[in-house]
Design a protein around this nucleic acid. Structure first.
Lengths: 246, 246
DNA sequence: TTTTTTGGTTGACGTGGGTCAACGAGCTTG
DNA sequence: CAAGCTCGTTGACCCACGTCAACCAAAAAA
């Protein structure tokens, strides 16, 4: 991932106060004075190789994780083997919040590429948010954002047709790459068609066809995982003016 | 709602320490010593008539709500009018967590029947969870549970067929009625077929047909909103052994 | 380099669930 | 107790997406 280079170069210390991801991550919006106190929060860092699990459903919950470099997917498995990808996470985003409720993780987190996370011991986080003014609020916002995001996915899955789902997905990725200082027009997806399909409630063939359709219509240009959004406004229109209904 | 009678009779004080819903609600698991301090948290109570909004998407976020009596749905609307029901909430459950992230609500909460909620001012909650040991953890668990629940819905929507979705829905309702001291075998749904459909990503006709199918197969007995689960194990089997695949 | 594997594309065909429409059963309102 | 709702059921038809299969490109292994 070309994106990780500047981060790993700058960020050899694991201190939040030194990290260039602050404004995407848990400490967002906290004053510098409080920020330095967060440094004690991030115990260790942990590298996770592509395809490896950061945690699995059922693992005891001890920590949440902030992605320093790389990206992940989270998924839930049914007894009969069906998989539902519940999200894709990028740098600065927090993984593991699902574990708090039952003190065990309820989904799997798998690295989509070689990645690195900051390990945030949960008991320490609890303690520190008692003490630090802004941290508690910030943490609540992170959890709340996750809930809102999930509602958006439910909207996708429950009431959009295939091409609308993919358009929404691409616009979302675009916006998130952009927030990380990358082009919003052009990026490399880290996940396979099958993973996109699982996330969007579609089969990989349907995803592939929708990609091709968008390309024919001049909305995007795709080659494998490389995507260019040629007409983002067109994609947005596709979502809003529902054509066929569902 | 017959269910509400014992609650309204006992609970004329709004104090958490007097409320028989504690073990379903925010204070779950907190020692009595701390529980009494929560009483200051619940400022007012608010009645919401059937079909009325508790809050709307875009409303400034000031409080979260604990359902004292009745039930609600939450939904998200798309510009073109499509609606996605994101959840159904029963007594003891918490509404409004979506508002924390942006300080504005991101969905609508509508009463399915005449209902009553405890208004929990959010700033007070923040303060108090700084002070009270167990409250912070408990609140985090409530939020985390919401995230896990949403992942379950994504599983439903993304990888189950119509009858599996309805079976999962019915079993979930059954379990929640049971947790509230009602029969798990027999209950009255509070929502219409259309609302169930929106929640499950199906059209009302499909929901209706699935109900009829279950009745033909002797799994349930339905008449309008009244449902009896004749063979809960059969419903469970339906979900696990995926027959047609998707 | 060739070989193998994995991921992606495309076509032909089938079907689950959406669409449209008619009708009936409860509620509500006058 | 009609009259007018809203909500639920059922049938006939259809289409978006799933299924199955062949094939190709890229990446990894050898």
């Amino acid at each position: 991932m070309r994106a990780t280079v500047p981060i790993t170069v700058n960020g050899l210390k694991s201190a939040c106060s030194q990290c260039n991801l602050v404004e995407l991550c848990l400490p967002f919006g906290m004053p510098d004075s409080e920020l330095s106190r967060l440094d004690e929060l991030v115990g260790a860092r942990r590298k996770v190789k592509r395809q490896q699990n950061l945690y699995r459903a059922g693992d005891p919950f001890e920590a949440i994780y902030a992605i320093r470099a790389g990206s992940f997917k989270t998924d839930v498995l049914l007894e009969d083997g069906r998989e539902q990808v519940t999200g894709f996470q990028m740098t600065g985003e927090i993984l593991g919040l699902d574990g708090i409720s039952t003190e065990a993780h309820s989904c799997n987190a798998v690295a989509l590429e070689d990645s690195e996370v900051c390990v945030i011991a949960y008991d320490k986080l609890e303690q520190l948010s008692h003490q630090i003014e802004g941290l508690q609020l910030q943490f609540h916002k992170v959890m709340s954002r996750e809930i809102v995001r999930d509602h958006g996915v439910m909207m996708l899955l429950g009431s959009m047709r295939a091409e609308e789902r993919l358009a929404a997905f691409l616009l979302n990725m675009s916006q998130r790459f952009n927030a990380r200082g990358f082009s919003s027009q052009e990026f490399n997806l880290r996940m396979t068609r099958e993973e996109i399909g699982s996330y969007l409630g579609l089969k990989l063939e349907t995803v592939s066809r929708a990609f091709s359709r968008f390309q024919e219509d001049g909305l995007i240009s795709v080659q494998q995982k490389h995507v260019q959004l040629l007409d983002p406004a067109g994609l947005k229109r596709l979502i809003q003016h529902q054509q066929g209904v569902r």
